[in-house]
Each structure stands twice: as structure tokens, then as C-alpha cells.
Nucleic acid binder design. Sequence first.
DNA 1: GGAATACATTGACAAACGTCAAATTTTATT
DNA 2: AATAAAATTTGACGTTTGTCAATGTATTCC
Lengths: 226, 226
Amino acid sequence: MRKRSDWSVLGQDEVTLLASGQSSYSYSAGESLYSMGEAGDGVYCVCSGTVAIRRLDAEGNSVLLQLAYPGDSLGYEAVLTGEPHRCNAEALGPANVCHIRSQTVRALLDKNPNLGLQFLRRTAASLDDAQDKLVHHATLSNRAKLAHLLLILMDRYGRLTADGASTLHLPVSRRDLASMIGARHETVSRIIGRFETDGIAYFSGRSVRIPQVNALVEEIRPQLVG
Amino acid sequence: MRKRSDWSVLGQDEVTLLASGQSSYSYSAGESLYSMGEAGDGVYCVCSGTVAIRRLDAEGNSVLLQLAYPGDSLGYEAVLTGEPHRCNAEALGPANVCHIRSQTVRALLDKNPNLGLQFLRRTAASLDDAQDKLVHHATLSNRAKLAHLLLILMDRYGRLTADGASTLHLPVSRRDLASMIGARHETVSRIIGRFETDGIAYFSGRSVRIPQVNALVEEIRPQLVG
DNA sequence: GGAATACATTGACAAACGTCAAATTTTATT
DNA sequence: AATAAAATTTGACGTTTGTCAATGTATTCC
């Protein structure tokens, strides 16, 4: 697992230090790793399962900003800046997560500057992703954004069936789906209804069947409607 | 200038190395520092003026993602990841910008790991900013988002007048304003019209007069409309 | 200084979206 | 299994927003 994560840049003795300073925890669905406003107490590394990164606004609206998967490191911003966490992290299902104490993280960063550069590359990738979302929010319709989101989720949760169609088990609720594209959940319900009447995707609970992936791709090109 | 920038973490001899590897350039309004798709050729450091960071989508829509001010470093993501630039950088007015070649940047990062951590903190702040925008795009109306944007621009471009009002010289066009809040420029024109009939802000070209800043703050709380 | 070009405003209309409310289904709890 | 709670779907309605088109206003470039 470590080989496919940010910690792969560490040398042999550093791995020993890491091993001595980490603990492993099991979370069940809905459990919180950390919350907005708390001080950073270390870096969390997802070993299995999916972790949702959310932010709440002043009125209590929840926005799902990112899904974290095995190999991803979480919460290092708070450790490095000394600021409180800016997001909630919550297990979406059963998940195993390692925890490396702040003290150990700082020692490792001190020993091996490549770890810092690795975190920097990871943060830059997250920034790139967030900026792409901003562009989509500014230029795409909700329908196109939902189509795009389904395509992204297919990469990780999709399965090809024998007849050339694809199926997908959604890791999140309709409400979360809605917050990810910046729409109300009622709007998402209606877009789903239209996807079904248009034969583009069929939803049943969290299962989705997509006869032709290409039809989803077509949806993304914005307002070429006559 | 260097004292207030990311480079303030450097020691004496490193500053000497920096000085030997940098060049200073003057840009005039609209000139490009670098463009999407180009390889990173170094880090750009804004000395004076304002630089706009934009991204274009497949259809040519431009979204203004960020404004960079004196002390800000730009383009280091491309240097560190080896990937091409993901954004355009363009001077909004006359600007002085230093350029530090990739080779020098890498040498400095090698000598002083704190520089990398400094870039990491800066990137984390940008990510935080982008995620805040995502939350706003998901929860606020265009009117509220424009009010919020005006408040942010006031921090840097605002002046208090004798009668307790504030004035503001916008650094960007209406189109850019629109792309920053994810709306069409026609919509921005109409919101501006409504701000004027409601006595909240008066626009004349790029000059804005805001009689009571608090009135703008009130606009941000979403749909508490009867 | 005047033509050409880009930028901004306004109107009319239709489509998309949010809000409120009710009904239905799913999930969790006892 | 029964109940309670949460999530989802659907309908009706009004508002906001985008689109298209026309007009007016700045800027830029010869």
C-alpha cells in the first residue's frame, strides 16, 4: 500500500520511523476522521474504502468537494500550516485509515525533503482539480455537470457488462451528488428522470446502468441545442 | 519586495544564487506571461501590478480564477510537476515581474527545503480559496456572489471617501467579473442595474461607489427573501 | 481624427432552476 | 417486524438565468 502512496519517496530507515509513529484505525460508514475547525493532529492515509471531504457553509449547507481513495493522504494542510482543518473528512463506507502523528510527519519532512515535494505535487493536483470544477461550474449546465460527474465516478466504480453497457454503484447519496455539481437535490432527481426518458442512464437506488458511455460524453458539450 | 514573498525563507548565500539566476521584465496591459499548454520555464514573481490567472475550456470560454499581486509567485506548479501550464497568466495593467529559471528554482529547492514548504503552504492557501469558491458557487445566487466579489476587491482596490462611502476601481472587465462568479456578462449587467436601483452600489465604467459597505454584506446571506 | 473593433447595456423570450409542499420509498432503530 | 426517521421523487409555481438580437459606448489602431 505504501508503495502506491505519497510515502513511497521514503528511504528504508525513514519507513522504520514512519512505522513506529503510525496507528491504524477502522471506520464504519458515516464516521468522522476529523472536522472543520479542529486542530490538525496528524496525517491520515486511506488504506481501504472511500473518504469524503466536505465543507459546510454558514447556513449548514454541505458541499462534497473531493473523494479520497486508498493511497491518498489527508489532513496534511492543517499539520503544515498550523491552521485548523478547513474541511470535514468522513468515511463513506467501512474504511481502514492509518494515522501518522504531526510530530512524526514533521520529523519525516525534516529528514526527507522529497516528502514535502510529494505533498506539494499532490496539493497542486488537487488545486488543478478544483479549478477545473470552477470552470465547469461557470460554463456547463447542471445536466452536463451531472453527466461529467458520472463519467468520473465510472472510472473508479464502473463495470463493463457483457452486452457492452456499463454499470456503476454510486458511493454517495443524491444530496451529495447534487452538492458536487452545485444544484439542489430535486434538480438532480429531475435530471435523472430526463436521462432515463432519453435513454442515457437508468438509475435504481445507487445502481446506474449506462447503455452507451458515449451518450454521456455527448451530454457534456454545452448548449449546442438548436 | 523579496521580504514579503515566498523567497523570504532563503538564507544569505541562497539569495545570491537567486539574484544571479533571475531577470526582471516589464509587461504592459494584456501581455501574456505564459499560456496553457506551454512547458514551465521557471517561476514568475510579481513585483508590481496585477496578474490574472485564467483557464479556457474547450469552447474557448475564459474563466478568471485568481488575481496575483506583488509578492505572489506564479508558475511553480509546472516547474515542480514537469507538466505543462494549466492556466494562462496575463498582466492586467503595467506590471514588473521577475523570472527565475527552472534550473535555479530546483537548485534553491535542493539547498533549502523550507522553500518547498513555503510553496506548499501557498498552494494549500490557493486550494482553500478555490474550495471556498466552489462552496459559494453551490450555495449562493449570482447576486450574492457578485456582492461577495465586490467585497473582496474592495480589500485591495477600495478607498474610503470623506462621507463614509467607499469607492473602488475595478481591475477587470464586466466579462471577467461575470466569469469570476460563473455567470454571463448580460446577467452581471442586470445585477449591476438592480444594485443601483436598490441603492447598494453605483457603477460608472470601472468605478464603483458603495454608500454603505454593510449593505453588500447583507446581500451575501442567501435567499432569506420572504 | 475616424474607422474598426471590442465592450457594455437593454429588451424580449424561453429554458433552466429553485422553492415549497406532498407523497413515496428506503433505511435505521427499537 | 413495526415504527420512526431520513432520503427520494414528483408536482405546481415563480424567479432567475441564458440566449438572441439590437443598440449604445469605449478603445484601439491606422
